[in-house]
Amino acid sequence: MRNSFKIAIDILYLNRAWTLIGYFFLVISPMVALVYLDMGVSNAYRDAVFVVEGGKEYFAEVLSIWFLLLFTFFSFGTNIDFMRVFNVTRKKFFASYMISLGILSLLIALTQKIINTVFASPNFVYSMYEFIYGDYFFVTSVVWLFSLLVLASSLFCLYTSIFSGVKDPIVRLFMVVPPFLPLVLIFSGDFSSVILFIMQVRTFSENRLAGNPYLMVSLFLISATICLFASHSFVKKLSIDIWQH
């Protein structure tokens, strides 16, 4: 019997081709480009993105979340197909799927924060310890982004699980629309609307939780756990007749 962690690695490996392409275009490139813009290069989008403090981070986070949505949505069917030919239980498939999303979330958080840190040149940091562990520096921001991405992943997992159980094509069509709204807004040039949600989450966490990032991370993880339990109840009912009939 193959364990859940190995199956999680299998899931990432099986989807490696388009995951890497998506990772490059939606995770690495935007962060590099936005940090580069931040260094003083003029661009038509600059004002839109940096209309508020920390705008580039919000924008990169939105794209990362959207990348996770694509990964969750498109890998779900192919993974479950592959796993069902090898008689993997739904419980194990679900656990593996979440582990793979967790790994991906951690990778995204690390990648974005490393790029940001490399380009940011934090001149105002007094010590390496403060740089790594300080309230608004590397580890804290990685943990923050990681927890945000885990929450997003679990929400997408819940969404995909429900979507898989819906047979009515009209309901399915309505369900497909919301995740693509940010994309429409991005191409329509309305960046501020796209990043508004993330900004509100950040503002809420900073104001309501007295600026305590760990409290906020805990809140995110609790929300993620609730989402996971909810999606698990849907995954448990997954049946191959969804694809056959």
Partner: peptide
Amino acid sequence: ENDKMLASMFYMMQTDAYP
């Protein structure tokens, strides 16, 4: 959801579920 029992079975499916 019986992992052990399902692992002892191989099901050659009529449908093509392989990548």
